[in-house]
Simulated scan of single mutants.
Amino acid sequence: MTACAVLSLLGSMVGLSVLGAVGEEQPAVPVGFATTLSAKRVPARFLPWIERAGRLCKEVSAPLVAAQIAAESNWVPTAVSPANAQGLSQFIPGTWATWGVDAGGGDGSSEPDGVANPFTPSDAIMTQARYDCWLADKVKKMNIGGDLTRLMLAAYNAGPEAVEKFRGIPPYPETQAYVERIVASLVNYTGDDPAERGSTFGDRVVANARKWLGTPYSWGGGGPEGPSRGLAQGSATVGFDCASLAQYAVYQASGGRTVLPRVSQLQVTVGKAVPRDEIRPGDVIGFALNGSYDHIGIYIGNGEFIHAPKTGDVVKISRIDDPFYARKPQKVRRFQ
């Protein structure tokens, strides 16, 4: 019996909500964080620059730039830290001297004013994105493995040398908290997918799941209202496991009217059974990876599903015809 099955059985016996986790061993590459920007929490005067910064390289999205600024300075252009980190993006003078760019005028105009100033929002935002892109490329060349975006954020906070030294996110509480805080707040800056406002329930299920692309897998974490710290190996991570991501997406899409069971083994027993060849976006698909339906995802169309795979990974998109999944027993359920 797998650890997941043991926990599911324990949850049934003692009446606790526990996770429907997965013990898959298949290596996979995360597709990255959601990239559509929401303007809801971005100050209007910074919005054009955030959007522009998010186009500099594929590794750095506009929501990521916004979430990072919120963590660095809470949107205060004149911020100065005790370590003399300056401006929206909190550059220390030595780093700014190397990377600072003159992107726009201090009066908010789009024309450069001849001075690269960390206290000028346009300069800070574009320098931040430029530096992030460079860090992402540098970290990629380290061949460390793991989520590139999270490693890039760690390099921004602790320096790329620390990431290389520890072959991952350094064991510094400040850096680990910094990365986790930005990942957890990304949803605040992720735009409303047009599908979320669509006419079908399935579209809304998919859109609510997509908001959390790139969010860490947390064993036992998450629920109808969003990510949370998990259990055991997930206790230090804010995120979702496979079952809680499905639970969240269906709950939010239904306006709180439909609450799925907490574990995947039960999620595949509720709702309407659907033949595999009639699957459509928003349907939940369960996989029997280890003898029980111990993994679950949300079909998004074009042969793809979104899911939270395993510890160390992130919410991502995979293909249902991937040999690892295609050869496993599957069940499809529809909830509206």
Rank of each mutant, 00 (worst) to 15 (best):
M1Y: 13
A3M: 14
A5F: 05
V6I: 09
L9R: 13
V14T: 09
S17C: 08
L19K: 15
E25G: 08
V31E: 04
V31D: 00
K40M: 03
R41C: 09
V42K: 09
R45M: 12
E51G: 05
L56C: 02
C57A: 10
C57Y: 11
K58Q: 13
E59L: 11
L64N: 04
A66L: 07
I69R: 00
A79W: 08
A83Y: 05
Q86S: 08
S89A: 14
Q90Y: 04
T98I: 05
T98G: 04
A103P: 03
D107Y: 09
G108V: 08
S110G: 10
E111Q: 15
P112E: 04
D113W: 15
P118M: 12
I125H: 00
M126Y: 08
T127Y: 12
A129P: 04
Y131A: 04
D132L: 15
L135S: 06
K140G: 02
M142I: 11
G145L: 06
N157D: 03
N157P: 00
P160C: 07
E164I: 09
R167Q: 11
G168I: 09
G168Q: 04
P170T: 13
P173T: 10
E174Q: 07
Q176W: 11
Q176G: 06
A177M: 06
V179R: 01
V183P: 00
L186W: 02
V187A: 13
G191T: 12
D193C: 06
D193A: 10
D193W: 12
A195C: 06
E196C: 10
S199K: 12
N208Y: 14
A209W: 13
L213P: 02
G214K: 12
G223A: 11
G230D: 01
Q233Y: 12
G234E: 01
S235M: 13
T237V: 08
A243N: 03
Y251L: 10
G255R: 15
T258Q: 03
P261V: 05
V263W: 15
Q267E: 03
A273I: 08
P275L: 14
P275F: 15
D277Y: 14
I279P: 00
P281V: 06
G282Y: 12
V284E: 00
I285P: 00
A288K: 14
N290I: 05
D294P: 02
G301E: 01
F305H: 05
I306W: 10
A308C: 06
A308G: 06
T311V: 13
K316M: 10
I317E: 00
R319W: 02
Y325Q: 01
R327H: 09
R327N: 05
F335I: 07
